[in-house]
Structure formats: C-alpha cells, structure tokens
Measured scan of single mutants.
Amino acid sequence: TFEVERIVRKKIVHGNTSYLVKWKNYSSKDNTWETEDDIRTKYGDLVDDFEK
C-alpha cells in the first residue's frame, strides 16, 4: 500500500487540479501527479495543510 509523505506542488490544467505527491519510503524521482479528488478522498488533511 502506498502512503503519501507530503504534497510537493500543485498544478491546474483546464480547470482540473492535480498535486505532485511524494510517497513515503520512495525517492523523489518516484513522485507522481494525482488528481485532487483521488488525494482528497484519503488524504484531505494533507491537501488542506498544503493549501494554507
């Protein structure tokens, strides 16, 4: 199971928000862009903290 360590960046393309996710126990080269809906479902607190 993958676990988010932190959110690195945010991008908005054509009105759709995605977050660059750093995965726990993986290197930064393994970071992936994930949709806001996918990340918010399980890691809403991390998204809220990133947006502060």
Rank of each mutant, 00 (worst) to 15 (best):
D45C: 08
Y19I: 05
K22I: 05
E34P: 03
K11C: 14
K29T: 13
K29Y: 10
H14D: 15
V4R: 01
F2Q: 14
E51D: 07
T32N: 02
R6E: 10
I7F: 00
S18D: 02
T41K: 14
S27G: 12
D38C: 14
I39Y: 01
I39N: 03
N25M: 06
V13E: 12
T41C: 10
I7Q: 02
F2S: 11
T17S: 06
N25R: 06
D49K: 09
F2C: 14
E34K: 06
V47W: 08
E34N: 03
V8S: 01
E34F: 15
H14C: 14
E3S: 05
N25K: 06
S27Q: 10
I12A: 06
K10R: 08
K10D: 01
R9T: 09
E5R: 02
H14Q: 14
D30F: 15
S18Y: 15
D45R: 09
K24T: 05
L20P: 01
S18A: 08
K24R: 10
T41D: 12
T1E: 12
D30G: 10
S18K: 11
N25P: 07
G44V: 07
E5G: 03
S18R: 11
R6T: 09
E51M: 05
R6Q: 14
E5F: 04
F50Q: 03
K10P: 00
S28H: 14
N31S: 09
R9P: 01
T35Y: 08
V21T: 01
W23D: 00
R40M: 10
E3Y: 08
S27P: 15
Y26P: 09
L46C: 04
F2N: 13
T35D: 12
E36K: 04
V47M: 07
V8I: 14
T41H: 11
V47L: 14
T35W: 11
E3I: 12
E3D: 08
R40S: 05
Y26H: 15
V21P: 01
L46K: 08
T1W: 10
E3H: 07
T32V: 02
T1R: 13
K29R: 10
I39L: 15
T17G: 03
D49T: 10
E36D: 05
D48C: 06
R6I: 09
F2Y: 13
T32D: 00
T1G: 13
I39K: 01
K42Y: 12
D38A: 14
H14G: 13
D48G: 05
D49M: 14
K11A: 09
V4N: 00
D48L: 10
F50Y: 10
E36I: 07
S28G: 09
D38G: 05
T17K: 07
I12R: 06
F2T: 11
H14T: 06
S27D: 13
Y19F: 06
K29F: 09
K42I: 10
Y26N: 11
I7V: 06
N16S: 12
G15D: 04
V13S: 10
E36T: 03
I39C: 07
D30A: 15
L46R: 03
T17F: 04
W23N: 00
F50I: 02
F2P: 15
E36M: 05
S27E: 12
T35H: 10
R9Y: 09
G44P: 15
T17C: 05
N31K: 06
V4G: 03
D45W: 13
T41V: 14
Y43L: 04
R6K: 14
R6W: 09
G44I: 10
S18M: 15
W33S: 02
H14I: 04
K24D: 03
N31F: 14
D45V: 10
D49L: 11
D38H: 12
I39T: 02
G44A: 14
D49H: 11
S27M: 10
D48F: 09
D49I: 12
V47C: 04
D37N: 11
K42S: 08
E36A: 11
E51C: 06
E5K: 01
L46I: 10
V47T: 03
E34W: 10
T1N: 14
W23H: 03
D37F: 12
E51F: 05
Y26Q: 14
T1L: 12
L20E: 06
E34R: 05
K24Q: 08
K29A: 13
K52G: 08
F2V: 11
I12H: 04
V47R: 04
G44Q: 13
K52L: 11
Y43G: 04
I12Y: 06
K24N: 04
R6S: 11
V4E: 02
D38S: 11
N25T: 08
R6D: 07
V21L: 02
N16T: 14
Y43F: 12
T1H: 13
Y19C: 01
T17P: 05
K29G: 08
F50P: 02
K29M: 12
E36S: 09
N31Q: 09
W33C: 05
Y19H: 00
D38W: 15
D37S: 12
K52E: 09
K10W: 04
L46Q: 05
K24V: 08
K52A: 11
L46E: 03
G15F: 04
E34Y: 11
Y43N: 07
Y19L: 01
Y19D: 00
K52S: 10
I7R: 00
E34Q: 09
Y43D: 04
G44M: 10
K52F: 08
L46W: 08
E34L: 15
E5D: 07
E3L: 07
S28E: 15
K42E: 08
F50W: 10
L46D: 04
F50S: 02
Y43I: 04
E34V: 15
S28C: 15
T1D: 13
T1A: 13
G44F: 11
N16Y: 11
L20A: 00
V47G: 02
R6P: 03
D37Q: 12
L46A: 07
R9I: 06
T32C: 04
D45P: 11
E34G: 02
E5S: 03
L20W: 08
D30T: 07
E5A: 04
D45F: 14
K29I: 09
E51R: 03
D37L: 12
G44R: 10
D45Y: 12
G15Y: 03
S27W: 05
R40N: 06
W23Q: 00
D37G: 12
V4K: 00
I39A: 08
K22T: 04
D38N: 12
N31W: 11
V8D: 02
K29H: 10
R9D: 15
T41F: 12
H14W: 07
L46G: 02
N16P: 01
E34C: 14
D45H: 14
S18G: 02
W23L: 02
V13G: 03
S18I: 15
K42N: 11
V4W: 01
K22D: 01
R40Q: 04
D30H: 15
L46S: 11
I39H: 01
D37K: 11
L20I: 00
Y26M: 15
L46Y: 05
V8T: 03
W33I: 00
E51S: 02
D45M: 10
E51Y: 05
I12M: 07
N31V: 09
T41E: 13
K10G: 03
R9L: 11
F2M: 15
S28D: 14
K24H: 06
V4A: 14
K11M: 09
S27Y: 07
E51I: 05
S18H: 15
D48M: 10
G15L: 03
L20G: 02
D45E: 12
S28I: 09
Y19T: 01
V47A: 07
R6N: 07
S27K: 10
D48K: 09
